[in-house]
Amino acid sequence: MSAPKKPADQTVEQVEPKAIYQRFTFLHDAIQHNTEAMFAEKTMNICQGISTCIDLIHSSETDRDNGTPPILGANAIDRLLRFVVASADMLAIDAEKCIHRVDKEGKP
């Protein structure tokens, strides 16, 4: 016995299953696509990264001043400082875009 054939115009739409891996986020599902929440999360992450970089640099400089071998060499410190500057600049550009968008929308 053969299976009944479906007419060509009747297609079954299959929903793709949700992937097991999801990018980590601090945001609740309901606000993951909220522009302001996404900007706040990005700001928090960048500021924490900048703080960590500066802490490592400070610790290395303190060690160097005390005659203790520093955690980071001069090249690593230079790379971290460039990373900090680039991160702060990127955040400033994103903040400026956010301000312009809010101004344009007229939100208080």
Rank of each mutant, 00 (worst) to 15 (best):
Thr11Glu: 13
Thr11Ile: 11
Val12Glu: 15
Glu13Val: 15
Gln14Arg: 14
Gln14Trp: 06
Val15Ser: 10
Glu16Tyr: 13
Pro17His: 13
Pro17Met: 04
Lys18Ala: 14
Ala19Met: 04
Ile20Tyr: 08
Tyr21Pro: 03
Gln22Glu: 15
Gln22Ala: 12
Gln22Met: 02
Arg23Asp: 14
Phe24Ser: 02
Thr25Ser: 15
Thr25Phe: 00
Thr25Ile: 08
Phe26Pro: 06
Phe26Cys: 09
Leu27Trp: 08
Leu27Pro: 11
Leu27Lys: 04
Leu27Thr: 15
His28Val: 04
Asp29Arg: 13
Asp29Trp: 12
Ala30Glu: 09
Ala30Phe: 01
Ile31Gly: 04
Gln32Tyr: 00
Gln32Cys: 05
His33Pro: 05
His33Val: 05
Glu36Met: 07
Ala37His: 10
Ala37Phe: 09
Phe39Tyr: 07
Phe39Thr: 01
Ala40Tyr: 03
Ala40Pro: 03
Glu41Thr: 09
Lys42Phe: 02
Thr43Ser: 06
Thr43His: 01
Asn45Lys: 06
Asn45Trp: 01
Gln48Tyr: 13
Ile50Asn: 14
Ile50Glu: 03
Ile50Gln: 03
Ile50Tyr: 04
Ser51Leu: 07
Cys53Ile: 13
Ser60Lys: 01
Ser60Phe: 00
Ser60Cys: 08
Ser60Ala: 11
Ser60Asp: 01
Glu61Trp: 06
Asp63Pro: 01
Asn66Lys: 08
Asn66Thr: 00
Gly67Val: 10
Pro69Ile: 00
Pro69Asn: 12
Pro69Ser: 09
Pro69Leu: 05
Pro70Ala: 07
Pro70Arg: 00
Pro70Ile: 03
Leu72Arg: 09
Leu72Asp: 10
Leu72Thr: 09
Gly73Met: 07
Ala74Thr: 15
Ala74Leu: 01
Asn75His: 15
Ala76Val: 02
Ala76Phe: 05
Ile77Lys: 07
Ile77Ala: 05
Ile77Thr: 07
Ile77Trp: 02
Arg79Ser: 12
Arg79Leu: 01
Arg79Pro: 02
Arg79Asn: 14
Arg79Glu: 14
Leu80Phe: 07
Leu80Arg: 10
Leu80Ser: 02
Leu81Val: 13
Leu81Met: 15
Arg82Leu: 06
Arg82Ser: 06
Phe83Cys: 03
Phe83Trp: 11
Val84Trp: 08
Val85His: 11
Ala86Gly: 00
Ala86Met: 09
Ala86Tyr: 00
Ala86Ile: 09
Ser87Glu: 13
Ser87Tyr: 08
Ser87Pro: 08
Ser87Gly: 15
Ala88Asn: 03
Ala88Glu: 01
Asp89Gly: 13
Asp89Thr: 13
Asp89Tyr: 12
Asp89Glu: 14
Met90Phe: 06
Met90Glu: 15
Met90Gln: 12
Met90Pro: 01
Ala92Thr: 11
Ile93Gln: 06
Ile93Asn: 04
Asp94Trp: 07
Ala95Ile: 05
Ala95His: 10
Glu96Gln: 07
Glu96Asn: 01
Lys97Gly: 13
Lys97Pro: 00
Lys97Leu: 07
Cys98Phe: 04
Cys98Glu: 10
His100Glu: 10
His100Leu: 03
Arg101Thr: 05
Arg101Lys: 03
Lys104Pro: 04
Lys104Arg: 05
Lys104Met: 10
Glu105Pro: 02
